[in-house]
Each structure stands twice: as C-alpha cells, then as structure tokens.
C-alpha cells in the first residue's frame, strides 16, 4: 500500500473542495445589477485557495522525496485512530445529542449527553457513575435555569416534556 504524506492528502482534498466550489460558483445567480457580481469575491478567494493548495501539494511532494517519507512518522497508520479515541467519542456523543434534541429537549438531552460523555471518558465504576450522574444533573440544571429564567431563552423543550 502506498503511504501518503498527510499534507499531500490535505492538499488533494483542498483542491477537490476548490474544484467543487468553483463549479458551484457558476450557479450563483446574476441579478444584472450594476457593480460587483455576487460570484466575483468568492471566485477570487477560491482561485487563491486553489493556488495555495497547489503550492502545498508541490511542497509536500518535494518534502516527501527529500526526507524519504516512507520511513517517516508523518504517514497514515491504521492505529492512529486509537490516538483520537476520546475526541471521536466526543463527536459521537455530540451527534447523538443533536440527533435526539427534538425528542429529548435541552434539559434531558443535555443531562444524558454530559452523563454519557463523562462515563465514556471517565470510566464505568459504580462510584464514578453516581458522581457523573450528580454532576450532569446539577450542572445542566443550573445552566438550563440560568438561560431559561435568567436570560429568558426558550430552550428546546423536547417531545417528552411537551407530552407531560
């Protein structure tokens, strides 16, 4: 399998991104008013971004050749995901929290999110689980109260509380 320098990978990704966005910029409507067109500024930014991405790609390829990148640590390895285990758990819990926000609401959803994340990151021992439950109820309860009663923000109630 060919090892890819992460900068090369990012540069290719950015070039693809620029290509898609430049293509999309052709769809920007021109209302025919005088002055600068709506697509002008984003196109300039995207062209500059493409040039810089190309520079990054060339630099990364040259750097890879010069430093014999196959031996370097700066290459993708399958176990790299273990390094980001905690971050991935945060992403996963946050997506779950957002996906169920309409049903659970900010209060219940928030408590479950904090409790779930604390337990995933902190461990599953009984004593810790009890602590995590107390922390999540108290902190989210306080935050919810400050925003709801203090700042008069109508936080998502959730279908469960609405039924009650």
């Amino acid at each position: 399998m060919m090892n890819i320098n992460k900068d090369t990978f990012v540069a290719i990704f950015l070039l693809l991104f620029c290509g898609i966005m430049i293509n999309s910029s052709f769809d920007i409507e021109d209302p025919g008013y005088q002055g600068m067109k709506a697509s002008f500024w984003p196109t300039i930014v995207l062209i500059l971004l493409s040039i810089m991405s190309l520079v990054m790609l060339i630099k990364s390829i040259i750097f890879q050749r010069e430093n014999n990148y196959l031996k370097s640590n700066n290459t993708y390895k399958p176990n790299v995901f273990f390094k980001f285990k905690n971050a991935l758990m945060c992403f996963f819990m946050f997506v779950l929290f957002l996906a169920f926000l309409d049903y659970l609401g900010m209060l219940i959803g928030g408590v479950l999110f904090v409790f779930g994340l604390l337990t995933l990151l902190g461990g599953f021992q009984l004593e810790k689980i009890i602590n995590h439950l107390i922390i999540s109820i108290i902190t989210i309860g306080i935050m919810w109260s400050i925003f709801t009663f203090g700042l008069k923000v109508i936080l998502p109630e959730g279908e469960i509380l609405r039924i009650w």
């Binding site: 905690n86 945060c90 946050f94 929290f97 957002l98 926000l101 309409d102 900010m106 928030g110 999110f113 904090v114 994340l117 604390l118 990151l121 902190g122 922390i135 999540s136 902190t139 989210i140 935050m143 919810w144 925003f147 700042l151 923000v153 109508i154 936080l155 998502p156």
Partner: peptide, 28 residues
C-alpha cells in the same frame, strides 16, 4: 479532572450557541 470540565463546557457551548438565534442549526 479535565474530562469533567470539558464534558460540562461542551454542553454549555451547545446551550450558549442555541441562545443566539434559537435555532438548532447553529449547534450543527
């Protein structure tokens, strides 16, 4: 411990961001 602070603040970020325009899209 840091994980306690981080978890609580992540939830706070979500609530704070929602408070700006009252739309869930902002949290996304």
């Amino acid at each position: 411990p840091m994980y306690v602070l981080a978890s609580v603040i992540l939830a706070y970020c979500a609530i704070g961001v929602f408070a700006l325009h009252n739309v869930v899209f902002d949290i996304w």
